[in-house]
Amino acid sequence: MDGKEMLRVEQLNKSFGDLNVLKGVDLTVNESDVVVLIGASGSGKSTLLRCLNFLELKNSGRIIVEGEQVEPKTHDLNKVREKVGMVFQHFNLFPHKTVLGNVIEAPIQVKGIDKKEAMEEGKALLNKVGLGDKYDVYPSKLSGGQKQRVAIARALAMKPDIMLFDEPTSALDPELVGEVLTTMKELAQDGMTMVVVTHEMGFAREVADYVLYMHEGQIVEYGHPSEIFDNPKEERTRAFLNSVL
């Protein structure tokens, strides 16, 4: 049932100055897995995610992407990032480009894809996330939920093998959370390998293959959603779940 290994992290340590944010994290993500990271703010889950596409550089440990150990000094990180898409809490759409312009930018500039082809693929992706009528609109005219769906389409346009989501619904008004989660759910059903940091416990329970609970830079507990949510082994996990559910 386990697919091919897509991502492995071994003994990952990361500190900012004197602050140890990640303390020996191990994690394996197989193909088509949806892994959800939960935990209080400051527990290191976003930092872990950002280490996975090298927006933050680890202090020690190993990060193995599709079987290849990636070292920032010797590897072309841009090539790795092409395979690992990321969706941010604050969308980070390019405000000077239209919706379609956002989506086709990297395929054209990074992969050198023909503009016509990129536009066709971009439009197909936007249709898929339900924004087929917004190609020529600038991001400032969109709602938060629409922005985040454009951001998802933008990341997908690079045809990544893995998608990282860093609290994708935390900046949204409550009534807009659903549409983004629906898009993510569809993506998971299509078999995308996903690592998601979120506070949406309903999403974790419903969509995740594995849930990881992080506390003070360590993975305290991981397992299938039913194990974590219904029958947590660790006292700290139980305390956290009690505080959020």
């Binding site: 596409n53 927006l55 841009n78 090539k79 990032r81 092409e82 690992v84 898409g85 990321m86 941010f88 604050h90 980070n92 759409l93 390019f94 930018e105 990297a106 500039q109 990074v110 992969k111 951001a151 933008r154 990341a155 690079m158």
Partner: peptide
């Protein structure tokens, strides 16, 4: 310019 712009660009594989 917001730092997130650079991060978004870099996360898409841009140099």
């Amino acid at each position: 310019i917001d730092q997130g712009q650079k991060e978004a660009a870099r996360s898409l594989g841009m140099t």
